[in-house]
Structure formats: structure tokens, C-alpha cells
């Protein structure tokens, strides 16, 4: 569910991905646990990382649980109680976290927005990490023309200015979660592709790859077994850095109107809608923006801390 579970599995070793690793639980599984465990230990020793993780988990629980727990019908428009401050802090309304410009409880709208943002971020990072790494690694492993073809493809994807490309795609396909995932993935694939390519270039001549060939391993198994494991740490580190950036990008696109479209919502969209009323009631913008900032900062700090732990 959380991004840490998602990537925690893939730690340095043993996620099953057609390579014959020892599955977790089989005979102690020292490969993943020894390296995975030491990384986890190093992470837990870093107070900043732990604090960021706690904050992020709280945000995550908020985004997941609130839409599930509030009674149905709580999110309907109620013009009579628009733009109320949070009753939690002694504001006038009945809603704990205040209401938006249509009188909907802000606590619920922001939770839904956050969920969309995190969904998009997670989907984009997983897609770009897998597709990008695979493209770069396959190109570099085969080399020659395939490598230059992949290289040209990535260059081509890279030369389009991000916002312009987003505009073009959104106007062609219409806004929405899937479109925004597609738009944001295009740029991410290039980043992970370069990483996959460089790691593969340096490790494809490693002695252990030669040894694998000598034992009759096929190129596919070398790629998905040896080279995938060799790249895992760097890919995880990059994915954690990418995640908050993607979340922010999605917010920006939705803010300018090229992203998530009503009636769906995302933080960027909420900020865009509420800023018209900022002189009457600044709370909705502050609360939504604050949640986004806190999410991104905690993710960034987790990423930094994990990178440090991977290096130690």
C-alpha cells in the first residue's frame, strides 16, 4: 500500500521476478534479510528518516481511512455552510477541518485529493522504474544498434518540454488519472533508462556475468537475474527521490488545469479552486497546500535516509 511496502519488497535481493531466488521464508533467506536487514537497521538509526516515515504513515492513514470512515453523503454540496473555519480550532462551522467553497467538509476533500496524488505518484514511479530500467538495461546489454536506437528514443522523449507535452497529450486524450500517469511516465522513463543503461554498461562485463554465461545462462536470465539484482539498490534510491517530485508535478499539472478533472479531485485542483476565495477564507488553501508540502518533504527525507542506509 505505502510506497515503502512497495519497494521494501524489492530490497537488494529477493523479489521473485522469474529469477530463481530463494523465496522469503525458505531456509533463512539470508540474501535479502542480511542486506535488507542491515539497510533497515541503518534506516532505523537515523532519527530524521524515522520521523519522516512516521509523518508519512500518518498522512497515508488519513488519506486512506477518512474517505472510508465518513458516512455516505457527507461530501455533498451544502451552500449554507461555505468556507467555514475548522471547528477543531474553534472555527464557526460544524466540520472538524472546515468546509470548502461549496460547503463540503474539507477534511474529506483533501483526503481524497491526497489519495489521488499518491496513487498517481506511486503508479508513475513503479511504471517508470520498471519500464525505464528494462529499456536502458536491454539496450546496454545488447549494445550496438539496439543501444543507439533506445538512446535515440530516450533523447526524443526528453527533448519535448514537459509542460508542452502534457498539454498536447491532455488535449488529445482528455484529463484524468490515466492520462496524467502516462504524461508523467514519459519523462520518468528517460531518467530510469539512463540509470539502467549506465549500471548495465559497467556490470555486463563483470566476472560473474561471464561466469553465468559459462554455466549456460541465457541473456534473459542474466538480465533479469544478475543485472536486475545489481541495479536494485540504485533503482530503489532513485525511485524514492522521484516519488515526491512526481507528486509535486501532478499537483502542478492539476493546478493549471491539465491534470485531474472534476468531479475527481487532487490537491493541485483543490488549491486552484480555493484560491479564488483566499481573501475571505485562507484556511482551505493553507490546509491543502500544507498537506501536500508535508507529504513531499516527508517522502524526500525518507528517500535521503534510505539512500544513506543503502550506502552504509
Amino acid at each position: 500500500m505505502s510506497e515503502r511496502d512497495e519497494f521494501g519488497d524489492a530490497h537488494l535481493a529477493d523479489a521473485d521476478f522469474s529469477a530463481p531466488d530463494l523465496a522469503p521464508g525458505e531456509i533463512g533467506n539470508a540474501a535479502s534479510s542480511s542486506s535488507g536487514r542491515s539497510v533497515a537497521r541503518a534506516f532505523l538509526r537515523d532519527p530524521v528518516g524515522v520521523a519522516a516515515a512516521v509523518i508519512f504513515v500518518l498522512i497515508l492513514l488519513y488519506a486512506i481511512l477518512v474517505p472510508l470512515l465518513v458516512p455516505a453523503g457527507a461530501g455533498i454540496v451544502n451552500i449554507t455552510s461555505r468556507l467555514k473555519g475548522p471547528s477543531l480550532f474553534g472555527g464557526g462551522g460544524h466540520s472538524l477541518l472546515g468546509t470548502d467553497h461549496l460547503g463540503r467538509p474539507l477534511g474529506l476533500t483533501v483526503a481524497e485529493g491526497l489519495r489521488t496524488s499518491l496513487e498517481v505518484g506511486l503508479a508513475v514511479v513503479v511504471i517508470t522504474a520498471c519500464v525505464g530500467w528494462l529499456l536502458g538495461a536491454v539496450g546496454a546489454y545488447i549494445g550496438g544498434r539496439v543501444d543507439s536506437l533506445v538512446g535515440r528514443l530516450m533523447d526524443t522523449m526528453n527533448v519535448f518540454p514537459g509542460l508542452l507535452l502534457a498539454l498536447a497529450i491532455v488535449s488529445a486524450l482528455g484529463g484524468g488519472e490515466l492520462t496524467i500517469i502516462l504524461v508523467l511516465s514519459i519523462e520518468g522513463i528517460v531518467i530510469f533508462g539512463r540509470l539502467g543503461r549506465s549500471i548495465t554498461l559497467t556490470s555486463k562485463h563483470a566476472e560473474y556475468v561471464l561466469a553465468a554465461k559459462a554455466f549456460g545462462a541465457s541473456p534473459i536470465r542474466i538480465l533479469l537475474g544478475h543485472l536486475r539484482l545489481t541495479s536494485a539498490a540504485a533503482v530503489i534510491a532513485l525511485a524514492l527521490v522521484q516519488l515526491p517530485q512526481v507528486v509535486l508535478l501532478e499537483a502542478s499539472l492539476s493546478y493549471v488545469g491539465f491534470g485531474i478533472q472534476p468531479p475527481n479531485t487532487s490537491i493541485g485542483l483543490i488549491v486552484a479552486e480555493e484560491q479564488d476565495f483566499i481573501s475571505i477564507q485562507a484556511w482551505p488553501v493553507l490546509f491543502a497546500g500544507g498537506c501536500l508540502a508535508l507529504t513531499c518533504v516527508s517522502l524526500a527525507l525518507i528517500g535521503l535516509s534510505v539512500r544513506r542506509a543503502l550506502r552504509s
Binding site: 535481493a13 531466488d21 566476472e207 553465468a212 541465457s218 537475474g225
Partner: peptide
């Protein structure tokens, strides 16, 4: 050099199993 002929991030057993299953 046995030190460099095994993938450093993969268990010895897995690499042995890989060879068997190849």
C-alpha cells in the same frame, strides 16, 4: 577469482540453483 565470479548481491545457493535450472 571466486570473489568476483559470484554476483555479490545474490546468494550462493540461488546462483547454484540458477545453474541447475538453466
Amino acid at each position: 577469482d571466486p570473489m568476483t565470479s559470484f554476483n555479490p548481491v545474490w546468494t550462493v545457493g540461488s546462483q547454484l540453483m540458477e545453474t541447475i535450472r538453466a
